[in-house]
């Protein structure tokens, strides 16, 4: 059993490493993208899609599938790489990222890309949609769950707090919001822009069950996402402490890498680091 868990964690680590490499190449090729936020979110995405979510790429519209909504739509690159690897569309299509007429926009389009549950991009849209999805499951007495991944800076959008109130009011314990708490927004730290802390207290005050986790620790993420020890009757908020640019030393926690595109030399250095990490 313990060995199974170790194997699972090692597999997630390898998968996330592979997807970081692919994402880097994809963004390098496109000449555009949001690599910093992609890399802070990727371990969460990989954990969800390869160990938690009940989704079937052969039946992307199955009514009883779990819903995952990427509210930080600018990190479409991380989502595309993940769901392509799951099998929702061929990984070869990643080469078209942001190319003319590609369905892989800079922000995800649910009408075009199988596996994308919500068209996002403007911030603060994902959580209200997640509340609606969780309400739909509740109305049907269905077991499927809804997960929403938000950025931290985007919590400055008031719509999130409208949704937070509604989720608690309707006791949506089938809804989990995961906050990619990388502490940096586009140009500066969140706390220097508009302060979010004390963030956990805010969610608790809104009536949510709150847990905090290292967003790059697969074992901890899995434990939280698979745990049944959450307070019943409360929506779940998992604050995942992450690093923007996680996995590449010179990008990590560096606000410049919000949407900078690596030069060929930087890309090679980054790929080298990632390759060494998986073999080391």
């Amino acid at each position: 059993m313990a060995q199974d868990r170790e194997d699972q964690l090692a597999a997630l680590r390898r998968k996330a490493n592979l997807l970081r490499q692919r994402d880097l190449v994809m963004i390098q090729r496109a000449g555009m993208g949001h690599i910093g936020g992609d890399f802070s979110a990727l371990d969460i995405l990989v954990t969800l899609y390869f160990a938690v979510l009940r989704v079937d790429p052969q039946h992307p519209d199955a009514p009883d599938r779990d819903r995952f909504i990427l509210s930080k739509g600018h990190c479409a690159g991380a989502l595309y790489n993940t769901i392509a690897e799951v099998g929702f569309f061929p990984t070869s299509e990643l080469e078209t990222f942001m190319k003319p007429l590609s369905r892989l926009n800079g922000h995800p389009d649910r009408t075009k890309v199988p596996g994308v549950e919500a068209s996002t991009g403007p911030l603060g849209h994902g959580l209200p949609i997640g509340v609606g999805a969780a309400l739909a499951a509740r109305l049907d007495g269905a077991a499927w769950r809804t997960y929403v991944l938000t950025g931290d800076g985007e919590l400055q959008e008031g719509s999130n707090w409208e949704a937070a109130m509604a989720a608690a009011h309707y006791a949506l314990d089938n809804l989990t919001v995961i906050i990619d708490r990388n502490r940096l927004q586009q140009g500066a730290p969140t706390e220097d822009t508009i302060r979010l802390e004390p963030l956990a207290d805010k969610w608790r005050a809104f009536g949510w069950a709150v847990r905090e986790v290292d967003g790059h620790d697969y074992a901890a993420l899995l434990e939280m996402l698979q745990s049944e020890s959450w307070e019943p009757g409360r929506p779940r908020c998992l604050i995942a402490y992450t690093h923007k640019g996680q996995g590449v030393s010179f990008m990590c926690d560096n606000v410049d890498w919000h949407h900078r595109v690596p030069t060929p030399e930087e890309a090679e250095r980054a790929l080298q680091e990632l390759r060494e990490a998986v073999h080391g």
Binding site: R67, P128, A133, A136, A166
Partner: peptide, 25 residues
């Protein structure tokens, strides 16, 4: 059961509706 009052919160109201539609409503 089929009436959801989100309170005085129009952005959330429309987002919630989109989510309900995603869930087949």
């Amino acid at each position: 059961q089929r009436l959801v009052n989100v309170g005085i919160a129009e952005q959330n109201m429309v987002g919630v509706a989109a989510g309900l539609a995603n869930g087949g409503k």
